[in-house]
């Protein structure tokens, strides 16, 4: 761990040597996003039981991931940026998960 900071101080990720994503990638992504929107809207008319919510969320997560990775350039970003995104998602999951730990187990033992 002698130089753990080297990657975030170095100039390699600054404006000068910025990685530019091709516009073709953007076009492909937007088409996928639009297709996914159509799919999720169509699927909501099919009765899948509890899986309606699962499918809707899965498609939502996929779309969001594509936006984060490509539109927001995280795929081409530093580890620090990736870690930042991950920590946000992690804390959100802690909020949801730990709160549900209370709600879900409240009825346990009361049957």
């Amino acid at each position: 761990m002698s130089e753990p900071h080297a990657h975030d101080n170095a100039a390699a990720h600054g404006e000068d040597e910025h990685h530019i994503v091709s516009w073709r990638v953007y076009l492909a992504i937007v088409l996928i996003l639009l297709a996914a929107t159509g799919t999720t809207a169509a699927v909501s008319y099919v009765d899948l039981g509890i899986f309606n919510a699962v499918v809707a969320l899965a498609i939502g997560v996929t779309k969001a991931t594509l936006v984060v990775l490509f539109f927001m350039h995280v795929k081409y970003s530093t580890k620090l940026t990736k870690l930042t995104v991950a920590s946000g998602i992690f804390t959100f999951l802690v909020l949801i998960g730990m709160t549900l730990a209370d709600y879900i187990t409240r009825a346990w033992g009361n049957w």
């Binding site: 730990m98 730990a101 209370d102 879900i104």
Partner: peptide
């Protein structure tokens, strides 16, 4: 810090099981 907040709520009727974990 993000894993302990429920200890402020032990007497508020939260689940006994989550109380144990927190």
């Amino acid at each position: 810090a993000f894993f302990v907040w429920e200890h402020h709520m032990f007497i508020m009727g939260v689940s006994n099981y989550s109380t144990l974990v927190f």
